[in-house]
């Protein structure tokens, strides 16, 4: 059996926290600061895993279930993503639906865990998360639809595997649309500017951060791990579309993929440094735009 998918899966697990570090470092650089070390994510994890935890008296088992289900769902979702030209460990016709809905499972449990605390702020964050992700959903599914139609196959590995620089040359417009739509979904789902600001210090303006306010210790570690993994999952999709390098050598393809992921991190950092976050009322327009872009891409592909 080909060991490349498994190896990549494990590597992705190990490297996911790095992506956040790259983004933070880029932002610090743009702001003229030194910033936290690249490996800050690992330090945070190590610290959190050593701690005890505090549970709110209001909460029930749902609150405890939130982090474990979230991380479980995202971990399985990662197994559905092809990376660097290799097939995903789990690949079958319609696998992207499982991917999309596993992310929905993670979201569902993050939201109910937030609501379980009874805190008004966490409720507010949950409400926004539910709204934005509902609107981002069609965009994501339509991106998959465009890719599947382009490849003539219903599995994600085949859809992304069918892409290559040659396809970019012949179908640049289509792929650019899909990449743009996916990038918007990536930013929205991972709580990045311009949808959410992960570094804000005002609970009222947060979305994702405020939902996990009450988690601590190993629970918070799981939450953090889940959000890094999710960023890796969606990032790998963006990279899979944008940089479909096929050299035929697995190690080289994998290396290119990793490099592209780092570039993606830098790009996010640049976006975050250059843009302010949108007003909450404007966010839906951005998300609807991603759906429209993807639908347009689908229509442009001749079946």
């Amino acid at each position: 059996m080909d060991s490349a998918p498994i190896l990549r899966y494990v590597l992705a697990f190990a490297l996911a926290p790095l992506l956040g570090g790259v983004i933070a470092k880029t932002k610090a650089f743009a702001a003229g600061r030194n910033g936290a070390p690249l490996l800050q994510g690992y330090f945070d994890l190590a610290k959190l895993l050593r701690k005890g935890t505090v549970y709110s008296t209001t909460t029930s088992w749902i609150f405890r279930a939130g982090p474990v289900v979230t991380v479980g769902a995202v971990a399985v979702a990662l197994a559905l993503v092809p990376m660097g030209g290799a097939r995903a460990p789990l690949a079958f016709p319609g696998d992207f639906l499982l991917l999309a809905y596993l992310l929905a499972v993670a979201r569902f449990f993050t939201i109910v865990a937030a609501l379980d605390t009874g805190s008004a702020f966490e409720g507010m964050g949950a409400s926004r998360e539910a709204q934005f992700s509902a609107l981002a959903e069609p965009g994501l599914v339509l991106c998959f639809l465009a890719l599947a139609r382009n490849a003539g196959d219903l599995s994600l590995s085949a859809s992304l595997g069918a892409l290559s620089p040659a396809v970019w040359r012949s179908h640049a417009a289509v792929l650019a649309l899909v990449a743009a739509a996916l990038f918007i979904v990536f930013l929205a789902e991972n709580a990045r500017i311009p949808v959410d600001d992960p570094t804000t210090h005002l609970e009222l303006t947060m979305i994702h951060e405020v939902m996990v306010l009450d988690h601590g210790g190993p629970d918070l570690a799981l939450v953090e791990a889940a959000s890094w993994l999710k960023m890796w999952v969606l990032g790998a999709l963006v990279v899979g579309v944008v940089a479909p390098v096929r050299t035929g050598i697995p190690a080289l393809d994998g290396g290119v993929f990793l490099a592209a992921m780092l570039v993606l991190g830098v790009a996010v950092g640049v976006v975050e440094s250059a843009m302010a976050r949108l007003r909450l009322l404007r966010v839906p327009q951005l998300l609807v735009a991603s759906g429209v872009l993807a639908a347009l891409a689908t229509a442009l592909i001749s079946g």
């Binding site: 609501l115 605390t117 709204q131 959903e137 069609p138 229509a299």
Partner: peptide
Amino acid sequence: VAAAAGLALIGGLALACFTKAFGAVFLGE
């Protein structure tokens, strides 16, 4: 495309609605 996008939107909104219902009834104080 309409069917796929519709299903996706329905799914997202249903999730919002049922986190709301479940949360309001069973969670918090």
